[in-house]
Write a protein that binds this DNA or RNA. Structure first.
Lengths: 239, 239
DNA sequence: GCCGATTTGTCCGTATGTATC
DNA sequence: CGATACATACGGACAAATCGG
């Protein structure tokens, strides 16, 4: 992302998070931002639009652009943007270790197609990983990747970061991720793999990820122990 | 919303949902859309941007704009945009009835402030509602509204639709909603109020809603029976 | 491998409308 | 009423990626 509007977006976002522009205050006007960043109206507006859709500010006609973001009180694990497990973990000040339980090539049949959204006959790589942090196995990831998109992937890479591998070595760009969050009963397998204490249900987040070609190349089902699950997002009317 | 870009957005979105532009196909090019809607490049692009951020399409440089939306398989209840309980229900083909359990004015103290994000001393209206559909009490809503924003609200209105009242009679515009999804153990009160069967945990969605003035005027905690909870959203990298 | 046509991505400059103060 | 500030749209320019001849 090397666009002017994106630089402005990041600068404003970071100032809001740092408290330079506090909750309920107004950020500088469009005209002031034009002056500061030496660009046009439209470029500033694009930055403000992204800032708005991420829930940081709200523009009010005739008045200004008001900060509506407050620092989160929840510690625990928080998701909501596209980020790797390690990014999320370090943001929470945690060390994650990953154990790869399954790593195999399969051909997509009807039942897998139903679960993952891939087509019957697609060549897939199936990976199951257990995420351990805070001294317990807390997340169970069951993934399928389109084999043609992850050529060269090994169990060793899966244990560190698949996304870093894909975006680095394979030059792929992860773009869109469609998510569904539900709750499910823990299965016998969940109980065997995770440290569930006496929880009998899990927070399940399904993620269908598309690359910059618009190809659906990954479906991951992340099964979280309930006390470590927290998801944040923003909805904006009209946009 | 009476803007050209928004009309284009809606037209394209509806065609995608209707299957006119199926999954993995390309929608008409920007040039074709300019021709069709008699507007400029930029206006079309704004419509495409919104379509992208809602997870319907993904633009690919040099090729076109590809549809990545698939019809959801999940029945049950689905949330994800800003909509009223009744909108959501009718989308799922259900009749909802609402029972108002609590309706009172309170002054925000430290513990309420902690829970809701309002300031100590704010005058609030506290409402508790139980949503019944499919023959069972399935959702327990605990809300607080800024009293100054909901003058004239009655228990009768709360039983039908508070948002319709606010957007209609009071001319308020609901704009941004910051959401957090977690899982919690059911309390004795939950068990008393909801038909929980043998579920001992709930999906809890907290909603902090801002109006067009950027005023945080509502916090609602919706406690869902797990088997009727399903949340969908889209994350886009870069935007 | 090159070139030109097509398509999306970013940005500029301008004009007009609407809401607030 | 005028100044300020956000909202929408126009028209033009060039960059970057893709594809076919």
């Amino acid at each position: 992302m090397k666009a002017i509007y994106y630089d402005i977006y990041k600068a404003l976002r970071d100032k809001i998070i740092a408290g330079v522009y506090p909750y309920q205050s107004y950020i500088p006007s469009e005209l002031a931002l034009i002056d500061e960043y030496q660009c046009t109206h439209n470029t500033v507006r694009k930055a403000l639009q992204v800032l708005t859709m991420h829930g940081f500010v709200q523009p009010i006609r005739g008045k200004g652009v008001k900060v509506i973001w407050q620092p989160g009180k929840r510690t625990r694990f928080v998701l909501g943007d596209i980020e790797t497990m390690h990014e999320a973990a370090s943001r929470n000040g945690l060390e994650v270790s990953t154990q790869v339980r399954v790593f195999e090539r399969i051909v997509c049949d009807r039942s897998v197609a139903e679960l993952t959204g891939f087509r019957v006959g697609d060549e897939l790589v199936r990976v199951e990983r257990v995420r351990r942090f805070d001294g317990a196995n807390l997340i169970f990831d069951k993934s399928c990747f389109l084999a043609s998109c992850v050529e060269g992937l090994t169990p060793e890479i899966a244990a560190s970061s698949i996304f870093t591998f894909l975006e680095g070595e394979k030059g792929m760009t992860i773009t869109t991720s469609n998510r569904t969050i539900t709750m499910e009963y823990a299965t016998a397998e969940d109980r065997e793999v995770l440290d569930l204490l006496d929880f009998d249900m899990l927070a399940v987040m399904e993620n269908r990820t598309f690359n910059s070609e618009g190809i659906h190349f990954e479906t991951t089902q992340s099964r979280h122990r309930p006390d470590y699950f927290s998801f944040m997002t923003t909805a904006v009317r009209g946009y």
